[in-house]
Design a protein around this nucleic acid. Sequence first.
DNA 1: TTTAGATTTAACCATGTGGTTGAATATATC
DNA 2: GATATATTCAACCACATGGTTAAATCTAAA
Lengths: 113, 113
Amino acid sequence: MVKSKTQELDHIFHALSDPTRRSILRDLGKREKTVGEIARPYRMSLAAISKHLKVLELARLIDRRKAGSHQFVRLNPETLKTAEEWISYYEQFWNERLEALRNLLEIEGGTDG
Amino acid sequence: MVKSKTQELDHIFHALSDPTRRSILRDLGKREKTVGEIARPYRMSLAAISKHLKVLELARLIDRRKAGSHQFVRLNPETLKTAEEWISYYEQFWNERLEALRNLLEIEGGTDG
DNA sequence: TTTAGATTTAACCATGTGGTTGAATATATC
DNA sequence: GATATATTCAACCACATGGTTAAATCTAAA
C-alpha cells in the first residue's frame, strides 16, 4: 500500500523530531554503516537503536542493504527533499504575506523619530 | 529558560509531524485568525485545537496577540527557517556524498549494454 | 553441526500524544 | 452585577513512543 503525501510528511517530520535519530542521520552522512557501528557511540541498547532505524526507514530517510550476517544502512537524501519542499513552499508563501504586513505596519507606525 | 538548538528542532519537527497542525499553519497563511475561527473547519473540539495551538506555540511556529476577549493567532515564519536550514544543510552535505557514490557505481557497473 | 556474532522481536514499563467532556476563567455587554 | 462569548484547564481515555532485558533469528565460521 502506498503512503499518502500527508502520511509521508507525518513520518518524515516525526522521524526528524528525535535528537538521536537526527544524530544517526548526521553520522550516516560520512558513509554507510552497519547497525552495530551506528549503535556504538550511543549509550542506549542495540534494540533501541534498531527501533530508531525502523522509524527512519518508515520515513524512507534511510535504506538498507543486506550483506551476509550484517547489513549496511545508508541515507536516502531524496526524502529530505520532500520535507524541504513542504517547508520552503509555505515559507515563501508566508514571507510574501509577512512582507505585506510589514509594509502595512511601516505605513501605520511611520519611521519618524 | 532558553531552549537549546536541539530542543528547538525537536519541537519544530514534532509540531510539523501532525496533519492537523500543518493544516492550521496553512490556514494561517492567508491572514491571522482567532482561535474560534481556526477551529471552525475542523470536526474536533475547541479544546483539541487549543492544545494543537500550544504545541505550535512551544515550537514558536505561531505568535499570539491578545485583543479583548479573543486573541489573534499568526504565523512566525522565521521559525520555519530554522527547520529548513537544518534540512538543507544536511541535504547538501549528503548530496555531495551521494554524487560521489553515484560516480563510483557508474565506474563499477559501467554503461555497456 | 555446534558456536559465536549481528540484528530483530517480544514483553514490559513509564511517559507522551491526541482526543473527549465539563468546569473554570477571563472579557465584553446588558 | 448578571450574562453571553471566547478560550483554557482538568480529568480522563486509548494508544503511541522511547527505553529496558531476554529470547529468537539469521549468517559465518570452526
